[in-house]
Design a protein around this nucleic acid. Structure first.
Lengths: 107, 107
DNA sequence: CGCTTATATTATTATACACTTATATTAAAA
DNA sequence: TTTTAATATAAGTGTATAATAATATAAGCG
């Protein structure tokens, strides 16, 4: 038998990260534009801590980045994603977000 | 909040399937050529039933196909894979298999 | 300051899943 | 026809992980 290949491990980890319905849904919205955490919480079917944890994983994997502004945190896709990630994002539906109902956050 | 999107679910399931080190390793070998199950068992670090189970999942997902010949079963990549799957396969290393030591199986 | 709001972290729990061992199936060989 | 070899299925187990509830942090506002 043959030892573990580092590139395969890395790819597997990244695909496992993407192979989650909640995270893919987050990305399908972030694909359109930068979004505030509160918008993502409103739109998904899970608790705020769950969203926060998913966003952290996506951030640590280099897929999204955060921008803090006062109490609010805005997330957006990173530029410079590997090809296979870009292709996956392209395969996601273009989900339209209802406009934010918090004027403080989303002016 | 917004209901589940079927395309996102489907994609998530497929990426979860691919997000496994053992399955990705199998694919990195199958990428080169059709292989007998026995070859894959020899080359990986897990038991024969584990390989068998992984191959079944890949087959049910339409990623590989089987060809039975006597006692032996040969697996190969399916043609006509979705773009994002092809791109992932391209990102896999081109792993070279040592030649099969079973003359009956691999002539 | 104390209160509220936005987000993150922690602890816990439940489910999914990859693996192993044991057994079944099927085909070829003896 | 019994045995052996190749693969598949079944049952059971341990670990990873996604979720929640509870709490912490931190900023803005009265």
């Amino acid at each position: 038998m043959i030892g573990t290949n580092a590139r395969v491990s890395e790819l597997a980890a990244l695909l496992k990260l993407l192979g989650d319905q909640t995270r893919l849904t987050l990305l399908s919205y972030l694909k359109q534009r930068e979004l505030c955490v509160c918008e993502l919480v409103d739109v998904l079917n899970v608790s705020q801590p769950a969203i926060s944890q998913h966003l952290k994983k996506l951030r640590l994997a280099g897929i999204v980045q955060e921008r803090k502004q006062g109490t609010w945190v805005y997330y957006s896709l990173n530029q410079q994603l590997p090809d296979y990630v870009s292709v996956i994002l392209k395969a996601l539906p273009d989900q339209q977000l209802p406009s934010c109902d918090n004027p403080k956050c989303c002016e």
